[in-house]
Write a protein that binds this DNA or RNA. Structure first.
Ligand code: SF4
Ligand code: SF4
Lengths: 138, 138
DNA sequence: GCCAACAGGACCGTTTCACTCCGGTCTCGA
DNA sequence: TCGAGACCGGAGTGAAACGGTCCTGTTGGC
């Protein structure tokens, strides 16, 4: 199996959709999220840190602290989330930076990968957390 | 960087497009292919074996032996080649076999991944070696 | 000041990646 | 017939990535 998402990316999306189910600004603790979405808590900690660093989530320390979305759920896409934890999506060496392969200027295959990449980005960039969340919870 | 093709997959496509430049049935040796496409030869050996096993290439042993496409270049796609060496393409756990994740039946994210997978397959399955080969060499 | 909760960095076992090596086998052709 | 040329196939390998864990801060509410 190739071309597959990492576990970290999958968990990140689960965590973010969990937050998206609640009203804007709702804070949930690491533990809440981990329990609800069945994500190992110590691993989730790392993932949430990445999301905070990327500016997609905000954290609140101290008692009653936790995590919340940094902006409305309709303004965060699957692509944003995945790239925050796994780094930029690049379906082949040459799709992120054509300089990586000296053949790229004349390579027909390169063009095919660019199309593939674009399609993938379109799908992932077109899905917002809002559209992923089940009926909101009050 | 996530969701990226392996080197093996990339090399496989290079090797196959090399074969596709020649008239049907043309045999090229491991060494020829490796030199022309700048692929480490001992690694290429493994890759070509996978392609032969998958029925995409045929091999000829003994002096003047080598490899050739098993069918016309217009009947082999990028998808075929990649799956032969890297195994089935699956963009997430749940896209190959929904049973892998018990959430899949109700998961909205799952549907998004299915769309992404389909788009990717469409692109890769729509590109034949014929269309990738530069002007054929006599 | 205590306790709840995140921050951040070190660590770690396993798997995958990207190759390499080598003995074996087949085949042509001199 | 015999040997050089070429693939077969399985084992091995070093480095890196994956998928976590742990532990010591630090912060903030009550
Ligand atoms: S697809 Fe073409 S340009 Fe891209 S890495 Fe392969 S050879 Fe280079
Ligand atoms: S996307 Fe949904 S169905 Fe697929 S693995 Fe993640 S949770 Fe499971």
């Amino acid at each position: 199996m190739g071309l597959q998402l990492t576990r970290g990316g999958e968990y990140a999306i689960r965590a973010m959709t969990y937050l998206a189910r609640y009203p804007e600004g709702h804070v949930a603790s690491l533990r809440d999220i981990g329990r609800a979405q069945e994500i190992p808590e110590s691993f989730l900690a790392k993932i949430l840190q990445s999301l905070v660093h990327a500016g997609l989530a905000v954290s609140q320390r101290g008692a009653h602290g936790g995590f919340a979305l940094a902006r409305p759920a309709e303004q965060i896409t699957m692509r944003d989330v995945i790239e925050a934890v796994d780094g930029p999506i690049s379906v082949n060496l040459c799709t992120l930076d054509p300089e990586e392969c000296k053949r790229s200027s004349t390579c027909e295959v390169h063009k095919a990968w660019l199309r593939a990449q674009e399609q993938l980005m379109d799908v992932l960039g077109g899905v917002t957390l809002k559209s992923l969340a089940p009926q909101p919870v009050a």
